[in-house]
Amino acid sequence: MTNQKILIIDDDPDIVEAMRMPLEANSYHVITAGNGEEGLQRAKEEIPDLIILDVMMETDTAGFHVAYELRSEEPDSEYKDCRNIPILMITAISQKKGMNFSPEKDDTFLPVDGFIEKPVQPKDLLEKTAELLAKKE
């Protein structure tokens, strides 16, 4: 495993910690941001290989806003270098299968590449992380 850089944007330090442990144990380099704004800033500065993004932060949908900013199609977008970074979204909204959420089924889907549910299961997290990073390469 290379030392790929993962940015976790989540306002819950305990969830961040719970994710950091398995990720670091698998030799990922983890950086964190405690809110949406800081997250955008760090994404721009660090250009990580993957962003793990919580939906509910300052507001119930703050994460959506971050995702839209990062994926903005505007030619002079501040975050144009971040456009191709895969985003894994953490959600507690769709507790079950995410019938509403899955990109294949919904035409108004979010510009993210994968979902993971809270509470975070380390196995699930590692699998999704590896999958998204592999897809990127």
């Binding site: 305990d14 969830i15 719970a18 994710m19 809270k118 509470p119 975070v120 380390p122």
Partner: peptide
């Protein structure tokens, strides 16, 4: 969720 994630 946080407690469960940490315990896991």
């Amino acid at each position: 969720s946080a407690i469960q994630s940490l315990l896991k």
